[in-house]
């Protein structure tokens, strides 16, 4: 695990070129050490044309980076390459953290159905050698922190969708990851629950100053949470077609952040660029 990216002084934001060139333009805005450096990543499934080809991006500690793009452009594939679930076909993924310091929150809330909430949360800790009693105590602490006290002994099918998602979140956060990969983690939740879970997560991420790479469909969510948003072009052979720094001070509040003067104009710009990618599909909506 090597750390990478010699640090250069970032250019003033106004001069940042679009499309994105990682070599000329290291994206770390906040002081923080690089955690992930993806360079010219190419991924393919089987013999098909590469899903992504030439993707480069960086995430530093204390930084939240969002990856957006048209459906099927390969956003999840980037996360899978970083997590090690799939081997890259070309290019490289450099990590300055150990695999055990990574947390991956999936789109679905597939907990082990035969394990209780407590056992599910404790599993990762147990795999890191924590004794059972201590892992259970820690699991209960995290469940309580996410508002799930009293549900420790429930099985996943006895929990609501929002509760399952919180258990999945507790499962990942209990490991105190230094890098958190999230694949549309809250897509299935209703608006209110989603707001609360996201706000909880935001607070924790800002407190711990971990690196986060978030794949999402929701442009507002991306902008509200992130320090930088990367736009993936339409696939196959998707690459990063633009990057947008988000210059809103932290700590942030999910509602308040939308009132920031730069929020609406940037949202419009990202929306415009994303629509451009989608329109090239020739389909329209």
């Amino acid at each position: 695990m090597t750390s990478t990216a010699q640090r250069r002084k970032p250019k003033p934001l106004s001069e940042r070129p679009v499309p994105y060139d990682p070599e000329a333009d290291p994206p770390e805005r906040l002081p923080g050490s690089p955690v992930v450096a993806v360079r010219n990543l190419r991924m393919r499934y089987g013999k098909a044309e590469p899903v992504i080809d030439g993707v480069s991006l960086d995430v530093a500690s204390g930084q939240v980076v969002s990856l957006i793009g048209p459906s099927g452009s390969g956003k999840s594939t980037v996360l899978r390459a970083i997590s090690g679930l799939h081997k890259p076909d070309g290019g490289e993924v450099k990590l300055s953290v150990e695999p055990r310091e990574m947390g991956f929150l999936f789109q679905d809330d597939a907990l082990l159905p035969w394990r209780t909430a407590r056992q599910n949360v404790a599993l990762g800790l147990r795999l890191r050698g924590t004794p059972k009693a201590e892992a259970f105590r820690e699991a209960d602490r995290w469940l309580a922190r996410l508002g799930l006290s009293g549900l420790e002994k429930r099985y996943p099918r006895q929990l609501s969708g929002g509760q399952r998602k919180r258990v999945a979140l507790a499962q990942v956060l209990a490991l105190r990851p230094k890098l958190l990969l999230m694949d549309e983690p809250f897509a299935s939740l209703d608006a209110i629950v989603r707001h609360h879970v996201t706000q909880d997560l935001l607070q924790w991420v800002e407190g711990e100053r971990i690196a986060v790479l978030l794949v999402t469909h929701d442009l507002e969510e991306a902008q509200a949470l992130s320090d930088a948003v990367y736009l993936l072009s339409r696939g196959p052979r998707a690459r990063i077609s633009a990057s947008y720094p988000i210059d809103i001070p932290r700590p942030r509040d999910l509602i308040g952040v939308r009132g920031h003067p730069t929020f609406a104009p940037l949202l419009q710009r990202i929306w415009h660029d994303l629509s451009g990618e989608v329109d090239q599909l020739g389909g329209g909506i």
């Binding site: 947390g103 999936f106 597939a110 082990l112 990762g124 795999l127």
Partner: peptide, 17 residues
Amino acid sequence: DTRLVERVQTLGGGRAT
């Protein structure tokens, strides 16, 4: 369920787990 397999893998589980 491959989702469960991947979930356990990303939590750090090997073959025995």
